[in-house]
Write a protein that binds this DNA or RNA. Sequence first.
DNA 1: AAATAAAATTAGTCATAACTAATAATTATG
DNA 2: CATAATTATTAGTTATGACTAATTTTATTT
Lengths: 219, 219
Amino acid sequence: MKKTYSEENYLKAIYHLGKAKHKVSPKAIADALENNPASVIDMLKKLQEKELITYDKTKGAFLSHTGEIAALDIIRKHRLWEVFLVDKLNYGWDEVHDIAEQLEHIHDDQLAKKLDDFLGNPAFDPHGDPIPGSNGKMPVYANILLSDIAVNQVCKVGSVRDTSPAFLKYLKQLDLGLGAKIKVLEKQEFDNSMVITINGGQQKTVSNKMTDHILVIQE
Amino acid sequence: MKKTYSEENYLKAIYHLGKAKHKVSPKAIADALENNPASVIDMLKKLQEKELITYDKTKGAFLSHTGEIAALDIIRKHRLWEVFLVDKLNYGWDEVHDIAEQLEHIHDDQLAKKLDDFLGNPAFDPHGDPIPGSNGKMPVYANILLSDIAVNQVCKVGSVRDTSPAFLKYLKQLDLGLGAKIKVLEKQEFDNSMVITINGGQQKTVSNKMTDHILVIQE
DNA sequence: AAATAAAATTAGTCATAACTAATAATTATG
DNA sequence: CATAATTATTAGTTATGACTAATTTTATTT
Ligand SMILES: [Mn+2]
Ligand SMILES: [Mn+2]
Ligand SMILES: [Mn+2]
Ligand SMILES: [Mn+2]
C-alpha cells in the first residue's frame, strides 16, 4: 500500500488539523495545503476508499488507525531530517522546513531508524516539536515543577533537576523513579510541603525543596 | 527552470548512455528507464522544447550545455547521498542505489555543497564511481604506474606510493608534484629506466624503482 | 423566517507522464 | 533485392492531481 507524495501530505495535514481540534473540513485542509476545496474533496474520497480516513460531511475528516500510523511516520521523518539538516549540515533552524518537506517523502524501510540512531535518537526537532518514536508515541516535555501541581491532580515524573547523591538516595528511598505516577493529596499553604502518593502507594509528605527539583508531565 | 523528477531521470539516462557512446536512441532510453519508446519520444520533444537536449532521428539525443550541467548535478547528488548512506548510516554499498535514486531529486541551492563538506568532499561513491564537483568536473583515479606509460605518451601525476622523506625530497628536487605533466621520451629495455620531461622542462632520467612509486592519470 | 454569506459538492477541464495499438521507417538477412 | 525483423513515430487512452465555474447545502445575519 504505498502512498503517493500527495496522499502523504494530506494525511499529515489532516493529522495536524485534527490535533488543533478544529473540525477537519475541506476548507481547512485546502487552506493548510494552499490548494482548492474541490481538489480536497477528490482526495478525501480517494483516502476514504483506501481506508486511511473516514469523512463525514458534518464531523469532518478523521484518520483511521492505519492513516494515523502513516501520518506519524511522515512527521517522524520530517522532524528527523530537520535535525539532520541543522545538527549535521549546519543549516539554520529557519531554513530547513521546505527541504524536510521533500525529504519526508523518501521511502525506505530502514531509513528512519538508521537516521534516528545516527542523530542520537533526538526527542525534539530544531523547532522544539516532539519527534514521534517508531511506535508512533510522542515524547512530552517534562516542563512543570511538581511543586506547581494542584491538589488532586495526577502527574508523571519526567526528569529531575538535581543529581546529587543525597537527592538520588532520597528518591530511591521513596521509590520514586522516572515515569512514576504521583498524585497530590494535600498542599500546605505555610511551607508548600505536599502529601502525595507514588504509584498509588502509601501517603508521603515531601518538602517544597524536594518538589522544586522534580519536573513532571501533567496527565 | 525547475525540472520535474521525471525530466531529471531522463537527463541522467541520456548522460550515461552518451558516455557509453552508444547512439542514444529512444529504444536505448526506454530500456534504461524501463519504460515505453513512445513515452520516450514524448519526453524527448519536451526536453528539446526546453533546450536541454537536441534530438535528431539519425544521430540520436545529445545533452545541450544546460542539459549536461543539470545531469551532472543530479549524478553528483546521487553519489553524495550514496556516500552518506554508507558512511554515516551504515547501509551496505549494495543497498543504497534505490534510496539515492529518490534523494537525488531533493532540490535546494545549498544542499549538495553542505552535504559534500559534511562528508569530507569525497571523490568517489561507494561503488567507486567518481563524484562530479560543483563545477561539473569528474575526478579521475590515478591508477596507472608511471612505469607502465608507453613512450611518447603524456600523463599527469595523481598520487605517490611512497611517503618516505628520501623519496619526497627527490620529487622536490625534480620539481615533480601532484598534477605535474609528464612526457615519456625513452624507455630503456634493460632496466626500465625512463627519460622524461616534467611540465615540459629539461629531460631527466629516472629509475624503474622511482617510476613504480608514482601513480598517474593517462590523458 | 428570509436574505445573505460561506462552505461543500459536482461537473468539466487541463497538464503530466505513463500506456497500447497501429503505422511508418530503418536495418538486417536469406 | 526482397522479405523479415527491429525501431521510430503517431494517435488515442488512462491515471493522478490539480484547476475553474456552477450548484447545492449549511450557517449567519438582519
Ligand atoms: Mn518543519
Ligand atoms: Mn511534504
Ligand atoms: Mn547509484
Ligand atoms: Mn532518480
